[in-house]
């Protein structure tokens, strides 16, 4: 028998708020309604996975194709290489000062 999923209900407003906080997303109110509705629609589709028995000992893999020793790429040699792209990379940062990335204040809290 398939295990009972932990939460047969929907993603509640409280759980949704917690996810949004963890995901670091500022959302508009109408966006929140749409996203929560779609998430719950997707969860209903995901529950199709509960309809079959899945052997808990079935191995899981990091991708579909198994690599053998012959096909697995070898580990690169660990050696230093000249890199000439530092300026091009830094040029992509939204705010740079004296080659340091600038970010807004990080509020400090006293250590207990």
């Amino acid at each position: 028998m398939a295990p009972t999923p932990p939460d047969q209900g929907e993603i509640s407003a409280e759980v949704f708020d917690r996810l949004v906080e963890l995901a670091a997303l500022a959302l508009e109110p109408e966006e929140r309604d749409y996203l929560r509705r779609e998430l719950n629609g997707q969860l209903r589709a995901i529950r199709a996975l509960d309809a079959i028995d899945v052997d808990e000992t079935l191995p899981i893999t990091s991708h579909g194709v198994p690599y053998s020793d012959a096909t697995r790429p070898g580990i690169r040699k660990d050696r230093a290489q000249e890199a000439d792209k530092a300026d091009a990379i830094l040029a992509q940062a939204p705010e740079v000062e004296n080659r340091y990335l600038v970010v807004p204040d990080i509020p400090q809290e006293a250590l207990e």
């Binding site: 949704f16 996810l19 949004v20 995901a23 670091a24 997303l25 500022a26 959302l27 966006e31 749409y34 996203l35 779609e38 998430l39 997707q42 970010v103 807004p104 204040d105 990080i106 509020p107």
Partner: peptide, 24 residues
């Protein structure tokens, strides 16, 4: 502060499809 910059950047920078995928 920094945390709000992250939230506002990601909130305005991503469309609804990335947001859906991140949350799920």
């Amino acid at each position: 502060g920094l945390a709000e910059m992250y939230r506002e950047t990601r909130g305005h920078g991503f469309g609804v499809q990335p947001k859906l995928r991140i949350l799920m």
